[in-house]
Each structure stands twice: as structure tokens, then as C-alpha cells.
Design a protein around this nucleic acid. Structure first.
Length: 806
DNA sequence: CGTGCTCACCTTTTT
DNA sequence: GGTGAGCACG
């Protein structure tokens, strides 16, 4: 949780919160370093030569930095120094006096990217980086713009930004009010649709008729409209709205747009391949006049199509912005030539691409290793063993740190096998991604309390906490309140206040409800006197929230309490409650501590933008990767996106990439047979080493194909078939299988042969142990006996069936 | 109104 | 196989 504090602290420097002042409403530049502060061109004159920051750039990078005028597309391949180019370009614009910090619009997708850019540019231009007020995510910048002109789209400038959870509950209310079977047509489904529509820039009015046809008997559009109306009443926005309202604003108010045309002299966009239609429209509107738009991206790394990203945006750039320059960054500084060639060979199978030829001076290195293994467990054993081996180092290779290794999976369900194995072997790891701090129930509850204190009209917050912790106000009562509120066009709080004065409620319910209302009033008064972190502490105490958690003896309750403590601390970093709330609604990402020395386990999506010396790419099986669902839903387009994902995976590796696929895999508890991914076959042979089994693993995986490059593998009874793969269930192999060997290293450690195997041999030093069945942690080794804690299906027992073999 | 049980679900994820 | 949501029951 330390990470939470750290990130929040860091993120403070991002001027997400814009307090609207006179100065900012006019064209007068404002920034913390404004007026007497020297311009960078002045600084440059006094200090080191201006061109300093350009040193060390190669020709193509330099071209990308110096092409300042007009539309520019920088096609930056993986590992070609994209961030460097971005930051240097900004520095260049400032140093040459073409723009002042507040006249630059620099957009990223994630807070992390924005933060990184800000930090790195700070390293180049120093304090001036603080003046980059318009460096941020699409959403953060759109939110700033909207705050200033909210009235023009029917909102107040203090509108709240709803998260998905609120959004879903609101939609549920809309569905209920419209008497739509919420089981058949879920709020989640509708939410997804609306999100897609917003991503494409469609307001309810402009929604193509057939789009709404498939939901609730052609009522999609009407529901969308109702939802938007509800949002307006609540003075709220969802994420999609931020952009959409901006677009509406720009198209309907030419003078507002003109103001921003004046303001933004140069526009810079990172990860352009991930932009959706709405973002594209937004950019096009803003860039319309000056045309100084520089988009940086890589069509081969577009992996967010399912979220509305349009690779087309980048493919069409030259057509959309006539007279544009296209600059390719093709020199790769990250990976060895084998890795680069393997990845390039794979991606060349895609049709929809602009094409690049990456090259590197780092020749040689290891080929990409591809292996077939027996099943998912074998795969995790293999990876874990190699992690340990890499960690120890050897005659040919230097020992690696855990943190230099990453396991990149297609889907998070694949992570579990590795986690289990790593726990057994006590290999430190972190799962990057995971559940987010701000999405945890207790954090949301706390936020709801604060929101309700701040704005009594916030019905969604009211609904969330009116009975949390339980105070005897049940669902029926809550529904009654909401209905009354809707009928009278008042807030739920107001409805509650009215209702406790009547005798419509049961006495007990009435008492607790009026107590709750009284508490709220008290907290509102308190809010004026104490700091917001202190306020939250009091509220959590007095509402009984913390007490309820303390009574709960489950371990989760414990962590929840800690999270809340963490939250109170983090809040202290902000100047006001308003500032804090704005921050959490837009900045939901937290850095997972990369500082510790741990193996990193994450999805391929989460790995974008990262790099590791050694990368494991497990689960390359048809249906898993490429994902069957992707193929079914999106066909050829889906396949190409999956292939780009594979490309992203391989290009994360600096020195070694190891791909694996399993013959058998358990999916949702069912055994399934797998074929190797087509991507395996698409890898160029010259850069790949096929090693089906290595080291201790005696058993053959049964993945042999007659006449192929895999067929040198020894195998037991697999029986080759041609031309297809022989597929056999794990159970086929019980007899005659020599089992797996593993070095036993000592008590308290180890060990497990988790696949069904009749007999397995283990060696420890000179001695060989034979085990009838395995799974467990060694408790003791005494003479010929091993005592093992056996843990499966929740039961723990100690067995001692290990017999030393002579 | 709160609790226990059954049943459907089950990529990728940011803001 | 695990989980969360929704429903029936006490």
C-alpha cells in the first residue's frame, strides 16, 4: 500500500485539477513559472548550447524532433526511443521559442505515460516542465476543458465524474423505470453498448438507427437518451462523456473552439494507434486551424481494438491530414537481432499495416526458444525452474535479477498456475494489474460518504451507503426513497427527510433513517471545521463502518481496514476534498512496486511500453492465443490484433524470449487438448530454436508432428500422426512414464510433482528418491525417509511415502 | 430484513 | 473450478 501513497504523492504534481480563474478563461498565459520566469530560449542562451538536448539522437529521431510544422506522423517501432523523441520534441519547441509551455497540448492514454513524460521532460528542461499545463491524458484534458464550459453542454462546472460502478447502477435504475427485464437485458450490456457508441462519437441523436435495434426490442436509443438525461439531472458525466461533450462543445460553439485554436500552438499525441473515433474527432477539431499535429504511434502495436481503438486512424493519417510527413523510427535499441527478426517475421503475416523494417546493431544473442510441454502445470514448472536457473546464473550467463524476468500471459486466468508454482518454490513475484485500490468496495464506500457529505444530491452515493454498514434500512425502503425522489424531482436525501416526518415507515426503520440523516448533517458541519482526512476518519468511526470491519474476523476485513487507513493518509496529500475527489475519478492507476526484486507476472496488454531482459510467453495455443473469442467475434481483424499482441510480447524481450505451449490444458476445470498456436508456425525458423523438452523433464510432451521441426523430441508412446498433431489426454501416459525428476534442496522447500504420475524419481545430491505420488512441501529428510506436507483440496496431512532408491 | 443456497458466468482494460 | 449475484427461506 505504500505504493498508493507514493503514487498519489507523485501524481499531485499533475495539474489535473483546474481551478478556473479569470486568467485562465482569457488568453493570458498562466503557469506557476510564469511572467518573470526565464523562457527556455533565454536559459539556453545563458547556459549550455541549445543543441545539447539533441545530442545522441540518431538521424531518424532527429528528423522526428525537428519536423515541427504541419501534420507529422511518427511511426515509432518497438524499442526505437519513442519517449525520448516525444520529450525532446517538446523541449525543442520550447527551446526554439516556437511555443511556451502552456501553448503545448500533449496527450497520452494513461496517467502513467503522462507522468513519465513529465518526469523525463523535466530532466531535459528543468522547472519549465511545470508549466506544461496541457500535458495529460485525453480524459484529464477533456475534463479540464469541460469544467470551464460545462454550462454550454447543460452541466455545472462542478460536475462529478462517475466510475463504471455508478454508471451501472444508474443504468439499472433506468432499465427498471422503463420496465425492462433486467435479466434479459443487463445494465452491464447496455453500459458496454453506450460506451462503444460514445467511443465512436455518437450522441443519442446521432446514433445510427440500427445500432440501438438489438437492445430490448429496439429501445437502445431511447434508453441511451434517458440515461443521458439522468446524468444531466445528477450533474454527472461518465468517462465517455468527457470527450463527447468536448466534441459537442467544439462543434456547436465556434468561438470556444477558436479560443483553443489560439491556445494550442502545437499538439502532440502519444500512442496514436490506440485512439478511438471520438478521440480522433477531438484531435481533428483542435488541430484544424494550425495543423501542427504530431502523432506518434506504431500500427503494429495497436492492441485495444476491443476497447474502441481504431487502427484505421493511424493507417489513414496521410489521407486525413493532407501534406503530412511520415517519419519512421526503425532503429531498435532494445532487443537482439534474433528477437527482433522473430517478431518482425511474425508481424509480417498481418495485412493491415503501414510496414516498417526494424533493425538493430546488437547482433546475435540467443534465438527465441519455443517449447511444447505436457500441460499447464508442466509449463509452470518449466518456467519456474528456468527462473531459478537464470537467477543463479551459470557458466555462460550472468545471474539475473528476478525483476529482470517477466511472464506475459494472454489472459489473467493463466496467471494462477504460475503463482501457485512460485509460492511453492518461494520465488518472489508480483502480479501487475490486479484489483485496483480505488475500485475496492471499502474505498468506494468511503468515497460515497464523502460525496454525499459534499453534495446531498448525489443519489448514487446515497444509495450505496444508506445501509452500509447495515443499519436496518433494507432494499424496500431504499427503493421507496428513490421512487419518491424521482416522483417529486428531489434527491433521495430530501425524500428521506420528507419520509421520516410521516408515519409511512416502520418505527424501527424510521428511527435508523433519521439517525443516519442526523449524522450526515453533523458531518456536513464538521466538514467545515476539520481537514478532509480527519473528516473521513471521523465519519468512518461514527458511522460504525470501521467497527463493523473490526468485528469481522475474516482476513479480508483486516486488509480493508488497512486500505482505509491508507486512504486517509493518501488524502492528506491533497489540498482539498474537491481536489482529492477529482483526482481519484480520473487517476485510477497505481504503480505496482517495480522496485522490489520480483518476477513480474502480467498480461500482454499490461506489458505494453515495458521491457525485460528475459521474457516468458506461455500458453501459445490455438484458442488461447490467439483467443478463440477474438477470432469468433472479429474474424480476420481479430486475428491480426492477436498477432500484434504476440508481436508486442516478443518485442518486450531485450535478450531472451521463451515461448511455450501445452498439449493439454485445464480450462474452467475441464481438460482440453490443444494445438500449438499458428503464431508458433509463423515464426521465422532461422531465429527460433525448437526445444520440446530440456533438463530434468523426462517425459515427452506428445506434441510431435511427423516431419516437422519438432519431431526430434523423444516421446513415450505418443505415436505420430501426419499431417496433424497427435493429441492425447494426460491420462494416456500413466504407464511406463519415467516421471519427472527434481533436485530436492532441503527442508521447508519444494516441491511438487503435481501431474498424475505413477512414479517419479527425485535426486538429492547422490541419492535418488522415488515417490509414489507427489505434491507437497518437504518437512524433514531423515535417513531414507522424507516427510512431506501434503496439501490438496484444502486438507493437510503429512505423509512419508518417500523411499530412497539405491 | 438478513442469510444461505443455487446457478450462470467465465479475454484483454483505461479513464 | 471458483465466484459473485440473485432468489428463496427463516
Amino acid at each position: 500500500m505504500l505504493a498508493a501513497i507514493r503514487t498519489l504523492g507523485k501524481a499531485r504534481h499533475i495539474p489535473i485539477v483546474l481551478i478556473c480563474t479569470e486568467a485562465c478563461a482569457t488568453n493570458v498565459p498562466m503557469s506557476p513559472t510564469d511572467s518573470p520566469a526565464p523562457r527556455i530560449s533565454d536559459l539556453a542562451r545563458a547556459g549550455p548550447p541549445v543543441a545539447d538536448y539533441l545530442q545522441g539522437l540518431n538521424d531518424e529521431q532527429r528528423a522526428a524532433v525537428e519536423a515541427t510544422e504541419g501534420p507529422v506522423l511518427v511511426l515509432a517501432g518497438a524499442g526505437t526511443g519513442k519517449t525520448r523523441v516525444l520529450t525532446t520534441r517538446l523541449a525543442h519547441l520550447l527551446a526554439t521559442g516556437k511555443a511556451r509551455p502552456w501553448e503545448l497540448l500533449a496527450v497520452t492514454f494513461t496517467n502513467k505515460a503522462a507522468r513519465e513524460m513529465r518526469e523525463r521532460i523535466g530532466g531535459v528542461i528543468g522547472a519549465q516542465a511545470e508549466g506544461l499545463r496541457w500535458l495529460g491524458t485525453f480524459h484529464a484534458i477533456a475534463a479540464q476543458i469541460l469544467r470551464r464550459h460545462a454550462e454550454l453542454v447543460g452541466l455545472k462546472s462542478n460536475y462529478t465524474i462517475l466510475d463504471v460502478d455508478d454508471q451501472e447502477r444508474l443504468l439499472k435504475q433506468v432499465l427498471e423505470a422503463e420496465n425492462i427485464d433486467a435479466k434479459r437485458w443487463t445494465a452491464k450490456h447496455l453500459g458496454g453498448l453506450i460506451d462503444q457508441w460514445k467511443n465512436r462519437g455518437w450522441t443519442p441523436d446521432r446514433l445510427p438507427p440500427q445500432e440501438g435495434a438489438h437492445f430490448a426490442n429496439n429501445r437502445g436509443q431511447a434508453l441511451y437518451r434517458l440515461y443521458q438525461e439522468r446524468l444531466r439531472v445528477l450533474n454527472a458525466c461518465d468517462f465517455g462523456d468527457l470527450l463527447l461533450h468536448n466534441i459537442t462543445l467544439f462543434t456547436s460553439q465556434p468561438d470556444v473552439l477558436a479560443e483553443f485554436h489560439d491556445r494550442f500552438r502545437y499538439i502532440l499525441v502519444d500512442e496514436y494507434q490506440d485512439t478511438n473515433v471520438a478521440q480522433y474527432l477531438w484531435l481533428r477539431l483542435l488541430a484544424q486551424k494550425r495543423q501542427n499535429l504530431c502523432c506518434v504511434g506504431d500500427d503494429d502495436q495497436s492492441i485495444y481494438g476491443w476497447r474502441g481503438a481504431e487502427v484505421d486512424n493511424i493507417l489513414r493519417f496521410e489521407r486525413d491530414f493532407p501534406g503530412s510527413k511520415v517519419i519512421r523510427l526503425e532503429r531498435n535499441y532494445r532487443s537482439t537481432s534474433h528477437i527482433l527478426a522473430a517478431a518482425s517475421g511474425l508481424i509480417s503475416a498481418n495485412k493491415d499495416r503501414l510496414g516498417k523494417t526494424l533493425w538493430t546493431e546488437a547482433q546475435g544473442g540467443e534465438k527465441v526458444i519455443v517449447r511444447g510441454v505436457w500441460d499447464g502445470e508442466a509449463e509452470s514448472r518449466l518456467v519456474a525452474d528456468e527462473v531459478e536457473r537464470a537467477r543463479k546464473g551459470g557458466t555462460e550467463c550472468e545471474p539475473r535479477k528476478y525483476r529482470d524476468m517477466a511472464i506475459l500471459v494472454r489472459a489473467s486466468f493463466q496467471m494462477r498456475a504460475f503463482e501457485e508454482r512460485f509460492v511453492i518454490l518461494q520465488i518472489p513475484y508480483t502480479v501487475v494489474g490486479g484489483p485496483r485500490f480505488f475500485e475496492r468496495a471499502e474505498i468506494r464506500d468511503a468515497h460515497a460518504y464523502l460525496r454525499l457529505i459534499q453534495s446531498p444530491d448525489d443519489d448514487l452515493a446515497f444509495e450505496r451507503i444508506v445501509n452500509t454498514p447495515k443499519r436496518g434500512i433494507g432494499d424496500a425502503t431504499v427503493q421507496k426513497l428513490l421512487q419518491l425522489g424521482r416522483a417529486r424531482r428531489i434527491s433521495a436525501t430530501a425524500a428521506a427527510e420528507a419520509l421520516v416526518r410521516t408515519d409511512e415507515l416502520a418505527a424501527r426503520t424510521r428511527t435508523s433513517l433519521s439517525n443516519f440523516l442526523r449524522d450526515l448533517d453533523r458531518w456536513r458541519t464538521l466538514a467545515e471545521r476539520v481537514t478532509h482526512d480527519r473528516l473521513l476518519e471521523t465519519v468512518l468511526e461514527e458511522s460504525g463502518y470501521t467497527d463493523a470491519l473490526r468485528l469481522d474476523k475474516t482476513p479480508t476485513a483486516q486488509t480493508r481496514l488497512e486500505n482505509l487507513k491508507e486512504l486517509v493518509n493518501a488524502m492528506g496529500e491533497f489540498d482539498s476534498l474537491q481536489a482529492y475527489l477529482e483526482h481519484v475519478s480520473l487517476v485510477m492507476d497505481l504503480d505496482r512496486d517495480g522496485g522490489d526484486d520480483r518476477v513480474q507476472i502480467m498480461t500482454l496488454h499490461a506489458a505494453k511500453g515495458l521491457e525485460f531482459p528475459l521474457v516468458f510467453l506461455p500458453g501459445w495455443e490455438e484458442g488461447v492465443f490467439p483467443s478463440q473469442r477474438s477470432l469468433d467475434e472479429k474474424g480476420e481483424k481479430g486475428l491480426e490484433e492477436e498477432r500484434r499482441l504476440a508481436y508486442v510480447g516478443i518485442t518486450r524481450a531485450r535478450q531472451e524470449a521463451r515461448i511455450s505451449f501445452a498439449a493439454n490444458r485445464q480450462v474452467y476445470g475441464r481438460w482440453t487438448s490443444q494445438l500449438p498456436s499458428r503464431f508458433v508456425d509463423e515464426l521465422p525458423l532461422a531465429h527460433v530454436e525448437a526445444a520440446s523438452e530440456t533438463g530434468y523433464y523426462g517425459g515427452g510432451p506428445g506434441m510431435q508432428q511427423h516431419g516437422s521441426r519438432w519431431d526430434e523430441t523423444p516421446s513415450f508412446g505418443a505415436g505420430y500422426s501426419s499431417p496433424g498433431w497427435r493429441r492425447a489426454q494426460a491420462r494416456d501416459y500413466h504407464g511406463g512414464h519415467p516421471g519427472r525428476q527434481q533436485v530436492i534442496e532441503g527442508e521447508g522447500r519444494l516441491m511438487a510433482v503435481s501431474e498424475p504420475s505413477v512414479g517419479s524419481d527425485f535426486t538429492r545430491g547422490e541419492r535418488v528418491f522415488h515417490v509414489k505420488f507427489g505434491y507437497g512441501v518437504i518437512q524433514a529428510i531423515e535417513g531414507n525417509k522424507l516427510t512431506v506436507a501434503f496439501d490438496k483440496a484444502g486438507e493437510k496431512k503429512v505423509i512419508d511415502s518417500f523411499v530412497e532408491k539405491t
